[in-house]
Design a protein around this nucleic acid. Structure first.
Lengths: 216, 216
DNA sequence: CTATAGTTCAAACGTTCGTTTGAATTTGTG
DNA sequence: CACAAATTCAAACGAACGTTTGAACTATAG
């Protein structure tokens, strides 16, 4: 009892990201976080300074391992260059959400921060994700030689958007929830398989971008 | 002075959706809305009952015209069946964001509501968007006969996600903002042109979905 | 004009918020 | 053990929140 299995810091972060994911940043009070973590209200300010500081710490605690998993998967792919493909690279990017290894509230946390007011979150977003995007763009570029650097990044942008939307809405409007009854994570796996095929087709599409002119 | 050009109701909605778009629902106070609209604080509660009621009214006031514009554009396309194509149908879906006709805060409003807590927004979302998705799915189905109904809706789901992401982030990480200096809306037009090509490729992709098996 | 319904207003209600305080307690170190 | 640093705690702070109230004002209709 004198040494709990988790530190106060960790328990606050765990409660915080669950609640941030559920209700958003502004709608989550420090009191509800403290209650959820089973700690005193003042502990949040003691360990993280302000509510904003807690948000930053919470996001980093979730995003960093996620992106490390992605980069590790990409490293392993590139160790066998003969088997490299756009499919596999995108699988590496989607991996954190189908492996089941990470925290369950990760999808919604990731999706939600992309909708928070820019000033709060944009710097952190750029700092955490830009290196990853650059790394994946570098891996995809030899596989998609017909795309210039900007076009590739635009298409990755769209691919990420499709992924984030899937994270918030696990099934489309008008389509019933999970496939096999009860098994929710299997539904997620096939959904990400569909997503992968969709974005790979978009990435590979051959026509060059020509503004103000639709193909006839 | 006795007859203002806009009613109190309209001024409140105008101020509300600007602020909701900028800061989100929970982070926007009725006081800041009243101040922005130049009306008394109590007017919001008088006209809309609660803050939640104001949110619903605000969203409907923006979403309904947007979706009517989409359906009108699709109607006009279908009046000339010979020229129907997946490209043109998706153009009709993206139209509200490239035509410049609607309110400037529309993109962010649309994008943000998709990240709000489900209980608040999901019913309204389904009520407003499901008929539109069904209509567009119906138009696309003859053009994509190799897709069954579910697969088509999944792919539309991803297309919408890519679009929403573009609405929040007008340019990808690592790519400078607008193309031609100053002209921001031209940048939006070419961005949506890129988006259209991306999602059309994803929609048209020919392989059937086969779970747990990547193509060799 | 008078009566009535609709609307605006300043003020206040009780609640909840993020943060601070200072004392109590626990932990680490010699 | 004794001392110091780190951490936890109950309590309180002022500020801001959504909502309500009742009077003042405006428009409409008989």
């Amino acid at each position: 009892m004198s040494i709990p299995t988790t530190t106060t810091r960790q328990r606050i972060i765990a409660a915080a990201d669950t609640l941030f994911a559920e209700r958003g940043f502004a709608a989550t009070s420090l009191r509800s976080i403290a209650a959820g973590a089973g700690v005193n209200l003042a502990a949040a300010n003691y360990h993280f300074g302000t509510k904003q500081g807690l948000l930053s710490a919470t996001l980093r605690a979730r995003i960093t391992p996620m992106n490390e998993m992605r980069l590790r998967a990409l490293d392993e792919l590139e160790a066998r260059p003969a088997t490299l493909s756009v499919d596999k690279v995108m699988d590496a990017y989607f991996l954190p959400f189908v492996s089941g290894e990470l925290d369950g509230s990760l999808p919604r946390i990731i999706a939600r921060i992309h909708a928070e007011p820019e000033d709060l979150i944009r710097p952190l977003l750029e700092q955490e994700f830009l290196p990853v995007v650059e790394r994946f763009a570098g891996a995809l570029h030899p596989l998609l030689p017909h795309l210039d650097s900007d076009e590739l990044r635009w298409r990755l942008h769209f691919a990420v958007g499709a992924m984030l939307h899937l994270l918030i809405f696990p099934s489309p409007l008008g389509v019933g929830a999970a496939s096999a009854a009860g098994n929710e994570s299997e539904g997620a796996v096939t959904a990400f398989s569909r997503l992968q095929q969709f974005v790979v087709a978009g990435l590979q599409q051959g026509r060059k971008h020509s503004p103000l002119e639709q193909q006839p």
